[in-house]
């Protein structure tokens, strides 16, 4: 009896303590998300909203080639960004975890995170400066005599978006991989070596499999925000690099068609959720397969 009352009061106190942030998230996240879902089933009737439930927006989203093209491009760009970011980031996380002395590790992590905390807008703009026709990269390459004329495939297209986002999300990929590498019991590597495996095989058969949860986390953390990015496609993407977020913004603020924008937002969110669940499923299956 006394135990159960104690447990109940603990539960009550815990709920009381967690209620301010929980209510906040409920009011400012759950309610708006529900509203967006509702809006996507309504339609815009010139200046007013027609509240009759309809699938019109979804039909339009799936039949209009422009919307599907933007959606597909967003997935492809976000996928390439994720691939590039994770592949580039893995050696860094590996280096800091395995080759940097323990007392210097947090300094390295600090150095890696600093650029991430400086104005995102200005960073993206500076990539435009670096990649431009008369940009830093082109003038340097020409100055060194490596190229004769400016490279034009690196600005105002999808490549520029990938490069810029791979830069912006680098720390998001490095940190989870670093954490998972740090957790690896180093004696496992010695055991593998003692049993006659060489460096490469030890890496492939011990280190890499144990780092999979970190890699999956990195993939999700990079993929989810990049698919909804607005600034980068707008600044460096040119007409062929625009993504779904740009269209959502146009629908809401320029075309004044909130229901259509809401439907596109819901579709984008569903795609993100499906892909995220797929990766989490793979991860779980993989972990179960090993244990």
């Amino acid at each position: 009896m006394a135990m159960s009352r104690l447990a109940r009061s603990e539960a009550a106190r815990g709920l009381l303590m967690v209620s301010p942030p929980a209510l906040y998230a409920l009011l400012l996240l759950a309610v708006p998300l529900a509203a967006i879902l509702a809006f996507s089933f309504w339609s815009q009737d010139f200046l007013t909203i027609d509240f009759t439930p309809t699938l019109k927006n979804y039909r339009e989203a799936f039949s209009e080639p422009l919307y599907m093209q933007l959606m597909l491009r967003s997935v492809l760009i976000a996928g390439s960004v994720t691939l590039a970011t994770v592949i580039l980031a893995f050696p860094i996380a590996y280096f800091v975890s395995f080759h940097v002395p323990p007392h210097r590790k947090s300094l390295w992590i600090f150095l890696i995170t600093i650029p991430f905390w400086t104005s995102y807008l200005i960073r993206v703009f500076l990539w435009k400066v670096i990649l431009g026709y008369n940009g830093v990269l082109n003038t340097t390459l020409q100055g060194l005599g490596i190229t004769d004329e400016p490279l034009t495939f690196i600005l105002y297209n999808a490549n520029a978006v990938v490069i810029t986002l791979a830069h912006a999300f680098a720390p998001f990929a490095i940190l989870p991989i670093f954490v998972s590498l740090e957790k690896i019991d180093r004696s496992l590597l010695e055991a593998s070596r003692d049993l006659g495996e060489n460096h490469v095989m030890t890496f492939l058969r011990v280190t890499l499999p144990l780092a999979v949860p970190g890699i999956v986390a990195a993939v999700l953390i990079v993929f989810i925000p990049t698919i909804g990015d607005y600034v980068t496609p707008r600044l460096v993407g040119g007409p062929d690099g625009l993504m779904i977020a740009n269209m959502i913004q146009t629908q809401f603020l320029k075309l004044n068609n909130a229901p259509m924008g809401a439907a596109l937002a819901v579709i984008a969110m569903s795609i993100v959720t499906l892909i995220a669940l797929f990766f989490l499923f793979l991860n779980r299956k993989y972990l179960r397969g090993r244990s």
Partner: peptide, 21 residues
């Protein structure tokens, strides 16, 4: 988990859904 959700939600979704409300 729900309180942490905004961490994995594209910001544009947070922005438009709040704007709508």
């Amino acid at each position: 988990g729900f309180i942490m959700l905004p961490l994995v939600l594209p910001e544009i979704i947070v922005a438009v859904s709040m704007l709508v409300v």
